[in-house]
Design a protein around this nucleic acid. Structure first.
Lengths: 123, 123, 123, 123
DNA sequence: GTGGTCTAGACCACT
DNA sequence: GTGGTCTAGACCACC
């Protein structure tokens, strides 16, 4: 993983884990990588990962069982809220970018419908 | 600027310049930073920048005037095509990501309309 | 200040500051002692104080203005909630202790009324 | 056990033993820990413990049987008086603290009744 | 093995 | 000067 310069690392890792949960790569009840292992894997200090897990727990997204590890919460409500918040943020970012290109809602929706018709292979 | 590991640097720089043009940070006829200066600024070999400019010129996006530097083309047609290709790619990326979240076209458009109503402040 | 062994220092400091606010020693809008100064005064690492202030801010009790310091919030609602939660906890602790002495509600209230009559000098 | 700075240690230990008796952790007739052992356990000079036991005996709370150790008294009257004095002090301390929060007798009793209704789980 | 806390000391950004 | 972040390394409690 690469880190952006202008955003705290712990926030970037939090976002990354949230994205794993939202996309289904991490499911409810799954155990997260241990603090030490993730710290090694991301080349980051264990305290930084500890903070990530602490804040995720404060947001209700994870639960930690002392001596057993940290797990994605079991509560569907929290995960649903996370998923919809995440989608709303992505939509918002997307709209902001498209508006930066001078496009308005109608044009954006046209593009989406056009793209959706023909599939979306590109590059 | 930071570079991703798995994509050639010259492609990343090309995308960056295209994004500057599309978003209006670089306008038609503007001079690009000199190869030397940009190489220093990005901490990259000047040959890499030279290749970027060469490929941009091959795509008709830039023109090089011997001894005077490299400029964004003056032809509105090319810039319009670039802009719309860029937008189509972004839309396509966006749709792929949203589908990864399990959302379909109707839901995506609903979210866009909802977001568009209330403005898009978030975070 | 002396710290108890079995409770994290940062929690004890948090409680102490909350108690200062609830009792009126710190009023709404007052600036808290700077992290470094409080760390020196309490003989504790600045990071520990930083965590205290961060968690107090997460609870809405304090706000920090970058480069200017940390302040007790201005929102009366939060302070009122803090005050009543604090009182409820103290009452609860008191009742638990009194029940450990074998007293029930009626007897406790009798004692309070008796004590309240004659003033409460003792020791 | 930890000792406060501004109160003689022997008084703190006396209070602690009284609290053990009042709460039932030490019952009538029970033997107290030997002076030697308690001194080691509390990391305190044996003379300090000896003074504690001497004063407790002077108050009639304990009796020392030469060569056999020190015991909680058998007399219910003394223990009952101790219990009620202890409770009165705690009530008095509690009232003083609650008044520091700006609450008066009526409000305090309301809180007690409210708390007593729903049990007293907190934290 | 797990996470939780604390210290020491560094560098940053903001004012 | 202020708080915010990160690292390095230590010790603890739980399982």
């Amino acid at each position: 993983m690469q880190f952006q310069k202008n955003t705290p690392i712990y926030l970037q890792i939090m976002e990354d884990i949230k994205s794993d949960i939202v996309s289904g790569r991490l499911k409810r009840g799954n155990q997260l990588t241990s603090i030490r292992d993730l710290a090694i894997h991301l080349q980051v200090n264990p305290n930084t990962i500890a903070r990530v897990y602490r804040e995720l727990e404060a947001e209700g997204i994870c639960v930690t069982k002392r001596g057993m590890g940290t797990y994605v919460t079991d509560e569907e409500g929290v995960l649903g809220a996370l998923r919809s918040q995440y989608a709303r943020n992505k939509v918002s970012d997307f709209l902001e970018m498209m508006r930066g290109l001078g496009l308005h809602r109608g044009e954006i929706i046209e593009l989406i419908e056009a793209c959706d018709m023909k599939g979306d292979a590109h590059e």
